[in-house]
Simulated assay, not measured.
Amino acid sequence: MHESVPHRGEPIPVTTTRPYYVPVGNEEQVFTAAYRQGLSIVLKGPTGCGKTRFVEAMAHDLGRPLVTVSCHDDLTTADLVGRFLLRGGETEWVDGPLTRAVREGAICYLDEVVEARQDTTVVLHPLADHRRQLPIERLGVTLDAAPGFGLVMSYNPGYQSVLKDLKDSTRQRMIAIEFGFPTPDIEEKIVANEAGIAPDRAAELVRLGQAIRRLETGGLREVASTRVLIAAGRLIAEGLDTRDAARAAIAGPLTDDSTVTRGLMEMIEVYLADQQAGE
């Protein structure tokens, strides 16, 4: 067996249609300025508030391909950088998603980065600062990031435990953009557009979501995100009764606590009363 030249894979495509995203502040201007200066970016905000869609829209606007990695406890450095694989009797190097982005000048988005092991995220440091380099120890080479490369991370600081947080050495290499849920008028437009439902029906779902976010209870794993409101809207678009859609897409995913579930069901009856599908 012999080692072949590094394998890069097929080129990463650039999205031709802009994903639907409605800005809630100056996040687009901050992202663009940081990207053009070669600065790495961290997006901080609750689950389902639009961080991933924002990155997709920005990659489109900047004309760059996007590589997305969903981080988890078992993510290794090799998963990001690459590894040798046996193919047809030969040992061949296969780039990981981070290496492909570095080579091709793509934007690499690490979703929920604190879920990855800290020994894995350390490999990001030379990329996240002025060096913009990726050492690949298995190959004995250091790659300079191609023009256009951008490093973006996200996490939910209100959800992860204190044992899962970004190292200070990582934080200080990043430009931070804070995200929250959109204002009701903007969220109504998003839900109506994404779910394909009437504006008044979207407004009802948003009012329910706003009410759930005001609850003070330990039984909710997460508050009602824009994502779950859209999911409920999509069920409504398929002809499901409004309240049944909300029970399935909002109440069900948010909690397993029977007492909290009953409370959410009561809220659904109040906020979505008499809203039948097809009205």
Rank of each mutant, 00 (worst) to 15 (best):
A277Y: 11
I12A: 07
A211Q: 08
E238D: 14
R247C: 06
R234G: 10
L43A: 01
E178V: 12
D168T: 13
L75A: 11
L254Q: 04
S161A: 12
T17D: 15
G158D: 12
Q133R: 13
V67K: 06
D168E: 15
T142V: 15
P6L: 02
A106L: 06
T242V: 15
I212M: 07
H7W: 12
V191M: 06
I175Y: 03
E115P: 03
T261M: 13
P11H: 09
V81P: 04
T142E: 12
V69W: 06
L240G: 00
R36M: 11
F31Y: 10
P184W: 06
K164S: 10
D144A: 15
V5N: 14
E56L: 07
V191Y: 00
A277G: 11
R247I: 08
E187L: 05
E269D: 15
R171V: 12
M1E: 14
G239P: 08
R221H: 12
G96C: 03
T255H: 08
W93N: 01
T120E: 00
V223L: 12
A106F: 00
V122M: 13
R138G: 07
R227I: 10
G150R: 01
L98V: 12
G25N: 13
A128H: 00
L163N: 14
V5A: 15
P199H: 08
V102D: 10
E137Q: 13
I212N: 04
P46R: 06
E187A: 01
A273P: 07
I190F: 05
T68V: 14
G278V: 10
P157N: 08
L215N: 04
F149W: 09
E115C: 01
L143N: 02
E266V: 14
P23T: 02
F54M: 07
K167L: 14
Y159G: 06
P147Q: 10
H7T: 13
M1K: 13
H125M: 13
V223D: 12
A78S: 14
L220E: 00
R247E: 14
G105H: 05
P23V: 01
P157R: 03
L229N: 06
N193T: 15
L208Y: 06
P23L: 09
V114K: 01
I107A: 06
Y35T: 00
C71H: 02
A211F: 03
D244N: 10
T32K: 05
L163S: 13
V69S: 00
T47S: 14
G218C: 02
I268L: 08
R201P: 00
L86K: 12
G48L: 03
V228H: 00
L139W: 05
E178S: 11
G196R: 00
R103N: 11
D185A: 14
I250R: 02
L80F: 04
P23W: 04
G278M: 09
G278A: 10
G25T: 10
L235Y: 11
A246P: 04
S225H: 04
D74S: 15
T68A: 10
V191A: 06
H125P: 01
H7L: 13
H125V: 12
T17K: 13
A246Y: 02
G89A: 08
L62K: 01
T259E: 14
R83L: 11
A128Q: 02
G209L: 02
I230V: 15
G239T: 10
Q37K: 13
D129V: 05
P199D: 00
V30P: 03
C71R: 08
I250M: 04
L110S: 01
L124H: 03
D244G: 08
L205I: 05
A176P: 13
